[in-house]
């Protein structure tokens, strides 16, 4: 077996040249154009993806706008509802207060009317009582109008404080009111009884006052001692009114 070295060398050179040439003029340009087109396609894809992303973003913006609108609408509705509620409550409260005040006014008026009516009733009753007492007293004997009250008057005068007792009758005669003109014996009795109560002699001046109905009244500078029916009736009446 023989190897032709010239042929081997030539073939090696040939192969190297071919490899270089094909690499330079075939594989590199083809590969470059493949890469170029792939990059172009990739760029196109990127562009498309970007467009899709933009559209998506816009859609989301619109969506969020819509949601914001919806939220605003809801909040407006809520506000209006709350306002209406507050207004209604206020109105209801107002009406309630008004009704309350009306009712209390009515109550007050009613109470006052009732009190007035009661007072009038009491007035009438006391007047009636006074009238009854006068009528009853007028049927008593004349003596009974004065006589039984002398001791009471003297006792009341005796119960007065000492300063007041001294003031009685100091400036002239003491004033005694009676329902009718007193007889001399009656006048004498009164004078004696009062003198005994005071422990000193006392001059009297008698004045007629039919209002007393029955009894006596001693008028002094600083005090008056009432011992008669009219005073009793008026006291009873006052008590009735305050308790009634």
């Amino acid at each position: 077996m023989t190897i032709d070295w010239w042929t081997l060398g030539l073939q090696t050179i040939n192969a190297v040249v071919l490899i270089w040439f094909l690499g330079r003029f075939f594989f590199k340009p083809v590969s470059a154009i493949i890469t170029e087109r792939r990059e172009a396609a990739q760029a196109e894809l990127d562009r498309a993806a970007q467009a899709v992303a933009t559209a998506e973003a816009e859609r989301q913006a619109v969506q969020s706008d819509r949601e914001a609108f919806a939220a605003v609408r809801t909040s407006l509705l809520e506000d209006a509802r709350a306002e209406a509620k507050v207004e209604r409550e206020r109105l209801m409260k107002l009406a309630e207060e008004e009704a309350q005040s009306l009712r209390s006014d009515a109550e007050v008026r009613l109470k006052r009317q009732r009190a007035d009516a009661q007072a009038a009733l009491l007035e009438d009753a006391s007047d009636l009582a006074v009238g009854i007492a006068q009528r009853l007293v007028s049927r008593l004997p004349e003596a009974a109008l004065v006589g039984p009250f002398v001791e009471g008057l003297a006792g009341a005068v005796g119960a007065l404080p000492a300063g007041v007792q001294e003031a009685i009758g100091r400036d002239g005669p003491a004033l005694v009111r009676a329902p009718r003109t007193l007889s001399d014996t009656e006048r004498q009795r009164i004078q004696e009884a009062l003198s005994a109560a005071l422990g000193r002699p006392l001059n009297l001046r008698v004045e007629v006052a039919p209002d007393l109905i029955a009894g006596l009244e001693l008028e002094a500078a600083t005090a008056s001692v009432r011992n008669h029916f009219a005073a009793d009736l008026s006291r009873i009446k006052a008590e009735l009114i305050t308790h009634g």
Partner: peptide, 14 residues
């Protein structure tokens, strides 16, 4: 050319 050993030898050498 590959039917001759010189060509194959050249390729294998490369």
């Amino acid at each position: 050319p590959t039917a001759h050993i010189e060509t194959d030898a050249a390729l294998a050498l490369i």
